[in-house]
Amino acid sequence: MSAPKGRLAAQKWLITRRLSQLGFLMLFLSGPWFGLWIAKGNLTGSVTLDVLPLSDPFVILQSLAAGHIPATTALIGAAIVTVTYALIGGRVYCSWVCPINPVTDVAHWAHRRLNLPKGWQPARTTRLWLMVTVLAVSAATGTVAWEFVNPISLLHRGLVFGIGFGWTFVLAVFLFDLFVSRHGWCGHLCPVGAFYGQIGRKPVLRVSARARAVCDDCMDCFTVCPEPQVLTPALRGATGSTPLILSRDCTNCGRCIDVCDLDVFRFTHRFDATPAPGRVASKSRLTEPQP
């Protein structure tokens, strides 16, 4: 941590993200709370300002697997959502919209604070397997199966329509991430995040490790990134390789941008070809003799 930036600058994207998450929630809550109807419904399906239909494409896919052909409105809604995320990055849903993200973020923050061990770390591909399993269960039971347990909709629908015992599912995710598995839910298991990760193989909005040459291996970005495996190819790439974080697992959360004191990272688009020389090995504090 050389030349620390200001507290606010080091939280810029985090704060923006929290505002975005809160904003998406308020779009749904302003109606029931203040009678100001902007978005009606919840994250699985909604109408904004009485004109814009949106549907969760993963729910629609489960519905199809269960043998129901959804009506046109839902199909249009799912298409709009799919195209949007295909452009900005599927997992932008995770970082900027999903209400579970603050929960698992707080769990991870506490996990770090308490210096807890990593715990159970199933392969990152587990979520894809689970995603397929969910579709198979939908087909076998003829239901939108994941919606019976999905903590995202339980929380979001709960906040907008009334929660019942729904908070227990959310608490379970929190405790799981805190004590059982670091980044366990969003990083390894959540089939919804996995699904959004599959949307759009080439999203336009990307983070670039453009100034990777100055990286001194402080590892702050690796500590904070929910999907640290995505950093390596870009950050440790040699001159000539792309500094763009191309992995679909990157959620475009911008935390790496925030925490890096050397301003290695920045948001850019995938066609950005600004030359980014590889790292100068001698800069690494790992190779330096420790004082």
């Binding site: 399906g45 269960a66 939108v144 919606e147 339980l154 629908r157 929660i163």
Partner: peptide, 26 residues
């Protein structure tokens, strides 16, 4: 068929003028 079709969006609940409908909570 309903369980295969309903996305649990609650739009029917919102548009019912008599507050007849509710979404089931756990």
């Amino acid at each position: 068929d309903f369980l295969a079709a309903c996305s649990r969006c609650g739009l029917c609940v919102r548009d019912c003028p008599y507050d007849t409908l509710t979404l089931a909570v756990p």
